[in-house]
Design a protein around this nucleic acid. Structure first.
Lengths: 154, 154
DNA sequence: TGATAATTGGACAAACACGTCCAGTTAACA
DNA sequence: TGTTAACTGGACGTGTTTGTCCAATTATCA
């Protein structure tokens, strides 16, 4: 139900959060997160336009997070690349329904609201800090800053 | 975040639930739910293959629900046409993660689980019975069985 | 200033979602 | 049996998502 673009964006941001405040190149992110490099660059452009990451051209450049991991939520990342669109009004355009949704669409919107809420409550810092047998993006237990193979909170 | 197909399927099923146990033709459903008729027929085929509706060819034929509205959940309808796929294993295919998801994918899967749960708890009968200013699929308050303009729980 | 490393943007392509159209099939009814 | 109503299946068209490739641009460093 989540698009590939959302999946890729979250992987990239998780990797960057683990490396923060260091900049990482698209190549490094692609390798660590196992996302096709050329497509990742498009996703990162979206994150850049959405104010989630900052990109620096030229030698020594790369991508950095705009916010610190504890200030950045999953919802912000998702909304930057593939916004969660709540159901604002009757999809059938029925005049009588207006702003008040019918029971069906109210339930669908409630489901969206739940997703929105749980994504709003998750910060990247929390995700990185959570004790788990699986370290985000890493295929093995690893120390901070050796991110060659480790980058996606998978 | 929900596909058009899911939206259309739910409208159709809501309409049928309101008319149950009477059969309704694709034409009637399309008009009431404001779904493109030709495409609706494809969606109904999916619902038929998924065991949600029964279709009867020939004069006097049409579409009926297989279950009664109180036995049919929103989740069953959704899964018949566009299944909610929980995250079963690490999308990166990291061996070390195996069945245990990392914190990121655990959160994404939790969001899916919430949607699944709230859809599983909603029956069509509940949706139709819910007191609301907006009657599903109807542009005005209307009695049962005058469904020309009313069919989608919007 | 020249070489190198990096992002950017546009053109392109494949797969899928959404939607249309129509000939074929099935069933009821007179 | 013939006519009419209704679903079925396939072919097709269009737009979006996902993905690739490459020339242009920007920035660092010697």
């Amino acid at each position: 139900m989540f698009s590939q673009t959302v999946e890729y964006a979250l992987r990239a941001v998780c990797f960057l959060a683990g490396q923060a405040p260091e900049a990482r190149t698209t190549d490094q992110i692609a390798t660590a997160t196992r996302v096709p490099k050329a497509y990742l660059s498009k996703v990162l452009q979206g994150l850049s336009r959405g104010g989630i990451v900052h990109s620096q051209r030229g030698l020594g450049g790369g991508i950095t997070l705009v916010k610190t991991p504890d200030q950045l939520t999953v919802l912000e990342v998702v909304n930057a690349v593939d916004p969660i669109c709540r159901i604002q009004e009757c999809p059938l355009g029925l005049a009588a329904h207006g702003v008040r949704l019918c029971p069906l669409h109210k339930r669908m919107d409630n489901a969206l609201a739940q997703v929105e809420a749980s994504f709003r409550e998750s910060t990247l810092a929390e995700i990185l800090a959570e004790p788990s047998e699986s370290i985000p993006l890493c295929d093995f237990p690893m120390p901070h800053n050796e991110a060659e193979v480790c980058a996606d909170p998978c």
